[in-house]
Design a binder for these strands. Sequence first.
RNA 1: GUGGGCGUAGCUCAGUUGGUUAGAGCGCCAGGUUGUGGCCCUGGAGGUCGAGGGUUCAAAUCCCUCCGUUCACCCCA
Length: 433
Amino acid sequence: MKISAPRGTFDILPEEALRWRWLEAAIRRVFDYYGYQEIRTPVFEHTELFQRGIGETTDIVEKEMYTFNDKGGRSLTLRPEGTAPVVRSYVEHKLYSKGGITKLFYMGPMFRQERPQAGRFRQFHQFGVELLGTESPLADAEVITVAVELYKELGLTDLEVLVNSIGCPACRKKYQEDLFSRLSSLQELCESCLRRLEKNPMRILDCKNPRCRELTKDVPAVTDYLCPACRDHLEKTLSFLDKAGIDYRLEPRLVRGFDYYTRTVFEVINAGLGAQNAVCGGGRYDHLVEEIGGPPMPGVGFASGMERLILTLEQQGKFAGFSSAPQVAFAVLDETLAADGFALATRLRREGLTVEACLEVKSLKAQMRAAGKLQAKFVVILGEDEWKDGQVSVRRMADGEQWRVDREEVCRFIKDLLDRDSSGREQERGSFS
RNA sequence: GUGGGCGUAGCUCAGUUGGUUAGAGCGCCAGGUUGUGGCCCUGGAGGUCGAGGGUUCAAAUCCCUCCGUUCACCCCA
């Protein structure tokens, strides 16, 4: 019985890892511009954090958490999302005591025990931002803007931004009650909607079942129930987005799954992804900090799924031309020259060239084939003939042109040639880190 | 957790109504030059046909169970 990666997990193999590195670098670059500072929290937390933060009745807490007891009998949970841990850390280290606004970002693996499907895994990766310490709708607008501008920076197109407000607990309560009384008579709703009716009637609004959509077509929107303050907050947020030229669609049926959201909620979706089409989800959480034991402190944030982004980037052809090809490969023709070849390769690396040394002395043909497969730009050949004259051969693989070069000059020689045709648009190894 | 599709070489897949040593393309390795890659040619390695059980003279092919995978539901990134 062969051992494979656990269900819902996957290996990121070298070719794929190149793409991840590129994406991670782009994300960090954009967050730098916007002044978000990285925070790294543990991958597991006390179970209680998520129970209190995300909400006891949410699906995540009810059935999707990887929870275990450590040897001291404490219940720990692999983090299913990033906001609660970041807020915990914010409270634990009293980051609010510096006063003003705190802007943080995180990136890393999350864990949820669900059945895998397209764009959904058990270990998956998210990055996200949390903007804490202000109730201003400018903060809502900024958080949405960071996401949108980041995706633009990645070169993504055809994304759609959905925005809504689910109000504060006060106006939402009234809405939920009205919704319940209107819908509780409708027995033709789908099974899951009948369950939602008890648990969270608002979720019925974003049911994908066409029949349910038809039945709830004329139901009033949450936005009709917003109190004056919440209404004002929404309108300002939208107007800031308008002014900044951020396209969005006001979607009154947009509801999100976590209990901690208040007022603004939003999503960025990509139709090409299949059923799991959300690439980003977020919103405002004005009571979460308090819930976790901190002072009353408002916040907004989003989380974005990296697997889904990479899938989208692949579909949109944004990964063409990635390569880890070395600039130089070595071919050594005789065992007696192995040490000299190894030493020369080391010198070239010290001079800053990416070099694949010769690790197995085989036929020149085999070594050339290997160099060709690596897509090396140049091959340095150590043969007895040239070595006894203090030289090596340097072959340019693109056109097969070949020179004899003094071994002391090799590095200079190759660098000159590389500079001359460095019009290449290819992503060289490490160039984006 | 529920439902559907799919499991044959490293990869993508053929495999006729069950019937001799299970195939192709690509990839890999080697050779076609005494020291030269990509194209071409030749040869080679590589499979407990997902696993277990059953039916049969005979199973990759039919039946059952399990496992894996994939898509969808629930929910979400």
